[in-house]
Simulated scan of single mutants.
Amino acid sequence: MNLHICEVTVHNWRSVAALDVAAEQRQFIESNAFSLAESLYEGNATSLALYDGETLVGYAMYGWYSEKNESIWLDRFMIDHNFQGNGYAKRFLHLLISYLQEKYQCKKIYLSLHPNNKLAMKLYESFSFRLTGDIDDEGPVAGVVMELLIDKVKLP
Score class of each variant (00 low, 15 high):
M1H: 06
N2Y: 09
L3M: 09
H4G: 06
I5S: 01
I5V: 15
V10P: 03
N12T: 13
W13Y: 15
R14C: 05
R14G: 05
S15N: 13
A17F: 13
A18K: 06
A18C: 06
L19M: 04
V21W: 00
V21Y: 02
V21M: 03
A22V: 10
A23P: 07
A23G: 04
R26V: 15
E30G: 04
E30N: 14
N32C: 04
N32K: 03
A33R: 12
A33S: 14
F34V: 12
F34Q: 04
S35E: 01
L36H: 04
A37Q: 12
A37D: 13
A37C: 09
A37K: 11
E38H: 12
E38Q: 12
L40Y: 11
E42M: 12
E42C: 13
E42K: 13
N44P: 03
N44L: 13
A45E: 03
T46N: 01
S47Y: 06
L48I: 14
L48Y: 08
A49P: 03
G53I: 14
G53K: 05
E54R: 12
L56M: 10
L56P: 00
G58S: 04
Y59P: 01
Y59T: 08
A60P: 00
M61Q: 14
M61V: 12
G63I: 14
W64C: 09
W64A: 08
Y65N: 02
K68S: 11
N69R: 12
E70L: 12
W73M: 01
W73Y: 10
W73T: 14
H81L: 02
F83I: 09
F83E: 01
G85N: 08
N86W: 06
Y88E: 00
A89Y: 07
F92S: 00
L93V: 15
L96E: 09
L96R: 07
S98C: 03
Y99R: 02
L100P: 01
Q101R: 15
E102D: 11
K107G: 03
K108D: 05
I109D: 00
L111W: 03
S112I: 07
L113Y: 05
H114L: 07
P115K: 06
P115A: 04
N116F: 05
N117Y: 08
K118R: 14
L119F: 09
M121P: 01
S126C: 11
F127V: 11
F127T: 10
S128E: 03
R130W: 05
R130E: 15
R130N: 10
L131N: 02
L131A: 06
D134N: 14
D134L: 13
D136H: 13
G139K: 06
P140N: 11
P140T: 12
G143H: 07
V145H: 00
M146T: 07
L149G: 04
L149M: 08
D151K: 15
K152G: 01
